[in-house]
């Protein structure tokens, strides 16, 4: 594990949004993790937990409030000249959630896909550009005739594939997939997930896969991080996370997901969490999950739990696994 090459290193990343009147929305609050070359790291959490903000901050759509993101050994948020910035833009790409909002309705599919090719001058002639577009369309399972069409003529799944082709056009190493399947139907979700996995095998891509659907994230990811209210609460191999979840929130999340198996559903003991997620503007003191946690202790309200490696390669932020605390 340790010998694997780190592609992205996120250290103590914070992103606050100023809501006015001196209020700060702490969308991402002190999050650290690494992404290794060639792996898929999943990031799950409920709405408002900061998973999308994390993705957008990594790709520089948002400036970081504090902390650092290192990509290929270089600081992402540091000052860069134009050429360096372009190089960075080529290597890191993003796939978006809403297939209806992520394509410009006034442009043809050809121009949408070729946008990156034009910006980075990847095609010398018009023929070469068209050639590239046709190749990309084929890669994502659409055909050449689709090049001159407009986005509104396509279904959600097809649009999402066009979005993938656009990201692939600049030959990236790392793709952030921000809820790429949440808006799609079940049968279409599988198409897109299979396509992403095929591309990863063929091109050695690294993914950060953001979603709220734990079953799909578990399926596609090598490792999964669970976020709650701006914090990362647990991160480990996806099988380990499913079989031995440590954090009470992960346990509740896993038990809340309905499984397409009626017998199992009837026999299953569920952990039903009380209440709703608190507002990220005024999060609870100490551990943010304590207001809904079935195991909350006195210490949880006072001290925020440390982000530590509870077992090998299994990180968790919870006082239940705090060795020092147990000794006292």
């Amino acid at each position: 594990m340790a010998t694997r090459e780190k592609l992205v290193e996120v250290k103590n990343l914070k992103k606050y949004f100023n809501m006015g009147k001196g209020q700060m929305l702490k969308a991402v609050d002190d999050v650290s993790f690494d992404i290794y070359k060639g792996e898929t790291l999943g990031l799950v959490g409920e709405s408002g937990c900061g998973k999308s903000t994390t993705g957008r901050t990594i790709i520089r759509l948002y400036g970081a409030t504090d902390g650092s993101v290192t990509f290929n050994g270089e600081d992402v948020h540091g000052k860069k000249n134009k050429a360096k910035l372009k190089e960075f833009n080529r290597k890191m790409q993003m796939i978006f959630q809403d297939p209806y909002a992520s394509l410009n309705p006034r442009m043809t599919v050809k121009d949408i896909i070729a946008e990156g090719i034009d910006i980075h001058g990847l095609a010398k002639t018009k023929e070469e550009r068209l050639q590239r577009v046709h190749e990309l369309l084929e890669t994502v399972g659409l055909n050449k005739e689709h090049a001159n069409r407009y986005p509104h003529e396509f279904s959600g799944g097809q649009r999402q594939r066009i979005g993938i082709a656009r990201a692939l056009a600049v030959d990236p190493d790392f793709i952030i997939a921000d809820e790429p399947i949440s808006a799609l139907d079940v049968s279409i979700q599988a198409q897109v997930v299979n396509l992403l996995q095929k591309l990863q095998r063929e091109r050695g891509l690294t993914y950060l896969f953001i979603a709220h659907d734990l079953s799909m994230v578990k399926h596609i990811s090598d490792r999964v991080g669970v976020m709650y209210l701006g914090n990362l609460v647990e991160l480990t191999e996806s099988d380990t996370l499913y079989n031995e979840p440590l954090h009470p929130y992960t346990q509740a999340l896993l038990s809340a997901i309905p499984v397409p198996d009626p017998e199992l559903e009837r026999s299953r003991e569920r952990i039903i969490l009380e209440g709703d997620v608190p507002s990220p503007v005024s999060p609870p003191s100490g551990c943010r999950f304590r207001t809904r946690c079935p195991h909350a202790m006195d210490v949880c309200a006072k001290v925020a739990p440390k982000w530590q490696e509870a077992r090998e390669g299994h990180y968790v932020a919870c006082h239940l696994y705090d060795e020092e605390l147990k000794e006292n």
Partner: peptide, 24 residues
Amino acid sequence: WGLLASMPKLGASDTDLIAIPGSP
């Protein structure tokens, strides 16, 4: 069949999902 096969199973080991090709 297709609908059931295209859902990932939380407990199962990772095999490729079986997608239904095409669109409705």
